[in-house]
Write a protein that binds this DNA or RNA. Structure first.
Lengths: 141, 141, 141
DNA sequence: AGCGTTCTAGAATATTCGAAG
DNA sequence: CCTTCGAATATTCTAGAACGC
């Protein structure tokens, strides 16, 4: 309860995928990634995302090195996002992708520390009950 | 605007990495490190860099203690440079590395004071909104 | 040798992927899929392919049911195509994909009957030396 | 049962980072 | 702060799996 009132400061690594996605979705300037109405999942407008964030013409301030939308999808899956098939978000002209991750929720940055990168070796470790090191979480002694 | 015309004198520690890189890239004698055409990023010719700056044969005027190119790359990353994969700079014969840092730009020495050495503790402090002291910046106010 | 002079009539199923790709690449009207200069591999211009063949706006004459380029790539891989990384075909503005399959070559339609759909079960059969049935090949003896 | 489509994951390589000296 | 090394992350290409036809 106390934790809810005074949430511990969360420090996630600025350059890693979870932090980038968190900044993007909470950035009012950005209109290619946004929260679903219930704040429980992520919606990505593929065309805008490609135009504004992946275009090779905008080399400088690029958040991602890739120019392929599929690489972004691979990252989402690696960090535990699963696609939600929601008819109400279908749009004939726009390609809207709807992804859910239980530890990526609007207004809950403290959950981000539970993100795991689901590589084979990490999954094996988790199976065996071992610790998984996650570099996106800053250890602030 | 005034700053652009009369940039304030910049004082960064002569022997630290940012200053060394700044001197190198602006030294017409040097041909292993140079600005990209738009002045927004750094291009390094690995062969020349190794031959002219890292070779143990040139003990005298050696700028760096290391003889490994990878250590130089580690420094670039530590100071916030990220590799840019730009197809147009590919050269079959030369190994050209293209790195970008928003505060390392041609003709903008005043930006150098914003360079941060991205150690874990510095990153955590920055996440928490605290000041980060950098020894490479000489305070001469 | 005689076969090269008088190649046996080849009949592949009109609606299956190999036939569709063959028609596309040999159709002068189409400019999104074409042969590499040596006729040994396939080059796909992603933007044009999406615009002209996958766009949901062109419902009528659509060759494929999908609107996703990735589904097309999945088909290429399923039929044994592998990506070729050829620098000389890089284009900053266009996304050109270069795929190779030893049995898909310009002017050699008779090779198409050797195309296999590499599903798990087909691969297992081939490992065991069994026949693989391919519905895209019309048996017209 | 085979094919097309979709979503997710495996595998390989390139890049970046943490930690120790 | 610099250097080194090993490990985590990012990116790319290919494949597994599930489903509908």
């Amino acid at each position: 309860l106390e934790a809810a009132v005074n949430p511990p400061a969360v420090h996630i690594n600025y350059n890693n995928f979870p932090a980038k996605l968190w900044r993007l979705i909470n950035n009012p300037q950005n209109d290619s990634v946004f929260w679903s109405p219930d704040g429980e999942s992520v919606i990505v407008d593929q065309q805008r995302f490609e135009d504004e964030l992946l275009s090779p013409l905008k080399q400088d301030a690029k958040l991602f090195k890739t120019t392929n939308f599929t690489s972004f999808i691979r990252q989402l899956n690696l960090y535990g996002f699963r696609k939600v098939c929601d008819r109400s978000f279908k749009d004939r002209r726009r390609n809207l992708h709807h992804f859910h991750n239980p530890v990526f929720r609007q207004g809950r940055p403290e959950l981000l520390v539970h993100m795991k990168r689901l590589t084979i070796s990490n999954k094996a470790k988790m199976e065996a009950g071992e610790q998984v090191t996650c570099r996106h979480i800053l250890k602030v002694t």
